[in-house]
Amino acid sequence: MPKRVALAVAVSFLSLTVCGAAGLAVAADGSAPATKVAATETKPYKVEGGKVDQGTYNGYRRYGESCLRCHGPDGAGSSYAPDLTDSLKHMDYDTFAETVINGRKNVNTANNNVMPSFGTTEDVANYLDDIYGYLKARSDGVLGRGRPQRIGD
């Protein structure tokens, strides 16, 4: 039961952030919000000449704070947690959000892998779409390893 509640939080959160992005888009150039939302959903990051937008950059940083210790530098995995640049080739945003919010357990005779629930961790939950954007850019192969430069840097 608590799981379902948390998921609901995640979903409402998702719509909130998408609305936010759309709102921003309208303010910026006055174009139709609907198409902008679709574009944001397909490409949750912006990479221009190797440089990234503030959201993707923030995602890199939040990743470093809360995810890197297990998933390794640049989302590339470690000896005890999966390579996220590979995971995100198969995982959509909703599954990603669900996993981050609720965590995941794989404990048996062969494995002792546990991902904690980040549903109440502000540094993660508040920036879920930024982290997703950063990792998706890494997964799509449009962003290299290391600290990305920001557009306008």
């Binding site: 210790r69 390794g72 590339a76 995995g77 000896s79 290299g144 390893r145």
Partner: peptide, 18 residues
């Protein structure tokens, strides 16, 4: 039995591709 902090760079190696 590899792992520990040393295992964190195991999958991709240390150092960027830049």
């Amino acid at each position: 039995g590899v792992g520990g902090w040393a295992g964190i760079g195991m999958a991709a190696g240390l150092g960027g591709d830049t």
